[in-house]
Design a protein around this nucleic acid. Structure first.
Length: 448
DNA sequence: CGAGTCGAGGCTCAGCTCTG
DNA sequence: CAGAGCTGAGCCTCGACTCG
């Protein structure tokens, strides 16, 4: 920020982006005291935004340091314009400088200030739907889901624009997420990925989605709904012994381990893993099978195979998708975990370096004894000056406490802080140096 | 200049997942 | 199957910023 007599000139954040950059601008904030004529005649002195001009500095003299010409002072109202023109003039070539000098100063219409959002204040100007579409295309799918479920006015818009979800998904996950199967809408897909809560008993904390079943259930609900393969075979045999094996292929299947934990999408053949189905899926399939058979008894024998192959195709698509999704989740989990580990390591290293620079320095072993440090290094975020400034006073206090404890006459009765044994205290630490056998009183030196 | 707002980061805890 | 580790939600504090 540059202060120039009654004006504060703030350079707004210019985030670098791809492609052609928008013209840089700053905000001129009018700080003149509302006195004299201005204070009475003008209702409101508005701050304004102006474009910034890149000024080459061949002579090492920039616009701000330019000597003020006598005619400048004569025209105080046009000071800003004149100054701006001189900057532009410095950038212009010789050929166009004359032309630009002759041209009357262009009156640039100041941009309206961006709308400020205030809690409890309804915006007067509505944002049009095209703008919303563009904004939401680049939003986090989890955020879209939140908006669709919580904001009534967004519900229809998000419901009627499936491409919005797809673009948001592709953009946010960089095209790495598998496309949903045909039986799943984009919203349902997002709901399974980002939603929380059991879809049966509505337990809030459930997060695990069983992609083989396209459902998110808590463990209790999952176990109450599943049925083992030999029971399914019995049910199918009872309905249609002839088509039993084909019907089995029309059902979503998952693999469970010997402790009844979900392993992944099925079918699996390795012992002791077992194939598990959802009872409701079996019941629905059998009901549909019976209905189709009863509606067309004459042609059913011929149509049965077509009907089942359609079902099988859908199920195959689901299983392929579920496998891809589980692989993706595995990969995402691993990369997230290694990313967190890197951040924690960086945090540890940064805090240790900063602690070593203190007076007196705090060593790594001392840090390990500070609860605040131990808590701080498990937070999976990159360290910065702010996080260190928050940790520093706590660590200094705790390290001082540790030192005080270790030097009191009772210290020998306290648990060994390093677990190294009383005679093996780290001698490199100044405050752990062994007291002389002749001195029995604690040292009066604050740094021991 | 004080009150209000907002976002970032710290911290805790319950529930979930992983591993042996 | 149990325990360790991870994760996200919720709450809190603090500093930056805005408004009246």
């Amino acid at each position: 920020m540059v202060n120039s007599k009654d004006f504060a000139f703030k350079v707004n954040k210019q985030t670098p982006t791809e492609g052609v950059l928008p013209p840089a601008y700053g905000t001129v904030i009018d700080c003149r005291p509302a006195s004299g004529k201005r204070g009475r005649s003008e209702k409101e002195v508005k701050s304004r935004q102006v474009r910034l001009t890149r000024v080459p500095d061949p002579d090492g003299v920039d616009c701000k340091r330019r000597k003020r010409e006598p005619h400048d002072s004569a025209n105080d109202d046009g000071a800003a314009t004149a100054s701006k023109e001189s900057c532009v003039g410095a950038m212009s070539t010789a050929s166009n400088s004359t032309a630009s000098a002759e041209r009357p100063p262009a009156v640039r219409k100041s941009q309206p200030a961006p709308t400020k959002f205030r809690r409890g204040t309804v915006l007067k100007k509505q944002v049009d739907l095209d703008s919303w579409f563009t904004i939401l295309r680049f939003s986090d799918p989890a955020q879209l889901l939140e908006m669709r479920t919580r904001i009534a006015s967004c519900y229809r818009f998000l419901r009627d624009n499936p491409m919005l979800w797809k673009h948001s998904r592709d953009h946010f996950y960089d095209d790495t997420l598998p496309d949903p199967p045909s039986e799943l809408s984009e919203f349902q897909y997002a709901h399974l990925r980002h939603g929380h809560g059991c879809m049966s008993c509505h337990t809030k904390s459930t997060r695990k989605t069983y992609w083989a079943f396209l459902r998110r259930w808590c463990k209790n609900c999952l176990h109450s709904k599943i049925i083992k393969e030999h029971d399914v075979v019995g049910m199918l045999k009872e309905a249609s012994e002839e088509h039993m094996l084909d019907l089995l292929k029309c059902l979503p299947v998952a693999i469970f381990d010997s402790w009844d934990n979900y392993v992944g999408v099925g079918p699996g053949n390795t012992h002791p893993q077992k194939n598990v189905y959802v009872l409701r899926d079996v019941e629905v399939l059998l009901a549909q099978h019976a209905q189709e058979r009863d509606e067309n008894p004459a042609t059913w024998h011929a149509e049965c195979r077509v009907w089942m192959s359609e079902k099988e195709k859908v199920m195959q698509e689901r299983h392929d998708f579920a496998r891809k999704m589980e692989l993706w989740e595995d990969h995402a989990r691993q990369s997230k975990s290694s990313d967190f580990q890197e951040k924690k390591t960086a945090r540890k290293k940064y805090f240790q370096e900063k602690a070593a620079e203190l007076t007196p320095p705090i060593s790594e072993k001392e840090l390990q004894l500070c609860p605040s440090y131990r808590r701080a290094v498990v937070i999976p975020k990159m360290p910065n000056m702010l996080s260190w400034s928050q940790l520093k006073p706590k660590v200094e206090k705790e390290a001082a406490d540790v030192r005080a404890r270790c030097t009191t006459p009772d210290a020998r009765r306290l648990p060994d802080p390093f677990g190294l044994g009383r005679d093996r205290v780290p001698h490199h630490l100044p405050f752990f140096s062994q007291p002389s056998s002749r001195t029995t009183t604690p040292s009066t030196d604050p740094f021991f």
